[in-house]
Design a protein around this nucleic acid. Structure first.
Length: 473
RNA sequence: GGUCCCAUCGUCUAGGGGUUAGGACGCCGCCCUCUCACGGCGGAAACAGGGGUUCAAUUCCCCUUGGGACUACCA
């Protein structure tokens, strides 16, 4: 029988990095084993769940390249089944009605805390036989003795004494089901065989194991992944900066890089650092997932992203860059010349880590006008380069458009030779003239990409600048 | 506080009773070079501490310490 895994987020916000990794590991394991990867939207809390968040989760998964099988199950549509399960537990004595009010519970916990004990429900309504006409919740009658345990796919044997667990609420006073009950019913209904989720769920697993037992259902296998930590060592959260996968998309990270980085958090395969999706699927095994938490390091993501930028298919990266420019509404001239964009990407991807950086550093390719960086201009646009600059200007003017890197190289070198200049002596001034600053791709590429007309305009401006300097030193 | 989990360079990690403890990111140096990068070469950098077990522990066990998670009528 093929295995069935699921990702079950609650739709209360964007897909965050932690959830993305959980989804990725489930997806990888399912694909590796030739099983199914399902989606379930845990929206039993109707107050906090939103339609937009559901869409955001779908979009986030798609962005990461994680596809799912079958129709996503919306948990709120299963309420009837959940209630039936509660009724069954009530009948079999595995559950009971609790009439304690929120105030009473709060007081109960306050007292326990005051006595140094752990705040938990004390089972006050466990044995009551009356049925007052008051609101009630249904609680699970947790075994008071013995242990619950399981062999975790990642951690190994994990167990706890039953007395540490209190009687959890299965059904709220408005008769809606709570998380643990719904999860058990739905995982069973969906035929889930392996539950891979975050470490923060181990406590729930103990409770859920009891529910499986009481309901007479077969429990799946569990694997709890260590959490992702922020750079300060605490569980990754909003206060660590970007946590939503969309934020990373907006920062110019590629899905492939994010996928790779997330996969390498807690999982490894020998010394291999970069993986194609196919390699990831082939190599991934839940047995190789480590048990210790890991820090989400942006620097590593950056280097990985740079790698994918450089080594990805040029056309694909160009498309990604075009989408990025459009989404971020980078003020570029409306330019549908994809060949030119392709050249920009080709020359910039060797020197940038993100699409965002690529966009920022390509400013002078997109703008009509450029500003000369004061310091760079002062350093490189000096009277000594006036002659070669003028010569280059006239040489380019005489060349047929469009200018190409290859075509520009010989005359450029000829000018160098005539003036007895080293490459750097002219390249830097030209670079400043054309880009405004001292940093850019190779100068021939820059000339080609900027194009003849603009090169002439910018060269003229630079020449004028030098002339002014020569007149007023 | 209680319960559960975790512990190899700063970070992600490989390894595993006997190794010069390996790789990657970052950092430093050199090379390449028209700038910045890329690339290449080299370097600094780790088995938390204490007890056992053993001929031999970084590796197995225990304790300590440190870190994290959970402790809702949220999921």
């Amino acid at each position: 029988m093929s295995i069935r895994l699921r990702f079950a987020p609650s739709p209360t916000g964007d897909l965050h990095v932690g959830g993305a990794r959980t989804a990725l590991f489930n997806w990888l394991y399912a694909r590796h084993m030739g099983g199914k990867f399902l989606l379930r939207i845990e929206d039993t809390d109707r107050e906090r769940s939103t339609e937009a968040a559901v869409q955001a989760i779908f979009d986030g998964l798609k962005w990461l390249g994680l596809d799912w099988d079958e129709e996503p199950l919306f948990q709120h549509t299963r309420q009837e089944a959940h209630c039936a399960a509660v009724a069954r537990l009530l009948e079999t004595g595995h559950a009971y009605r609790c009439y304690c009010t929120a105030e009473e519970l709060e007081q109960m916990r306050a007292e326990q805390r005051a006595h140094g004990g752990k705040p938990r429900y004390n089972g006050r309504c466990r044995h009551r036989t009356d049925a007052p006409d008051q609101p009630f919740v249904v609680r699970f009658r947790t075994p008071s003795e013995g242990m619950v345990g399981f062999d975790d796919l990642i951690k190994g044997r994990v167990a706890v004494a039953n007395e540490e667990l209190d009687d959890l609420v299965l059904q709220r006073s408005d008769s809606t089901p709570t998380y643990n009950l719904a999860v058990v019913c739905d995982d069973a209904e969906m035929g889930i065989t392996h539950v891979i989720r975050g470490d923060d769920h181990v406590n729930n697993t103990f409770r859920q194991l009891h529910l499986y037992e009481a309901l007479g259902l077969k429990a799946p296998q569990f694997g709890h992944m260590p959490l992702i930590l922020g750079e300060d060592g605490a569980k990754l959260s909003k206060r660590h900066g970007a946590t939503s996968v969309f934020e990373y998309a907006r920062l110019g990270y590629l899905p492939a890089a994010m996928r790779n980085h997330l996969a390498r958090l807690g999982w490894s395969h020998g010394d291999q650092e970069q993986f194609t999706t196919e390699e990831l699927v082939a190599a991934f095994d839940i047995k190789d997932v480590g048990a210790s938490p890991s820090v989400f390091a942006l620097q590593k993501l950056d280097s990985l992203n740079g790698w994918y930028l450089r080594n990805g298919d040029l056309d694909e990266v160009t498309d990604l860059f075009a989408d990025f420019l459009q989404q971020e509404a980078i003020p570029i001239e409306v330019d549908h010349d994809s060949a030119r964009l392709r050249r920009i990407v080709e020359s910039q991807r060797e020197r940038t880590a993100t699409l965002k950086e690529m966009a920022e550093k390509s400013d002078y390719f997109f703008r009509e006008e450029i500003d000369l960086d004061e310091k760079a201009a002062h350093k490189h646009l000096r009277p000594v380069v006036l002659a070669p600059l003028r010569e280059l200007r006239d040489t380019l003017a005489a060349l047929p458009a469009p200018l190409t890197a290859e075509g520009v190289k010989p005359p450029f070198e000829a000018i160098l030779e005539r003036h007895g200049l080293k490459m750097g002596k002219l390249a830097q001034p030209v670079r400043v003239a054309l880009t405004g600053g001292g940093i850019s791709p190779g100068i021939y590429d820059v000339i080609e990409i900027i194009g003849k007309e603009r090169c002439l305009t910018r060269l003229d401006a630079a020449i004028a600048y030098v002339e002014r300097r020569a007149e007023h030193p």
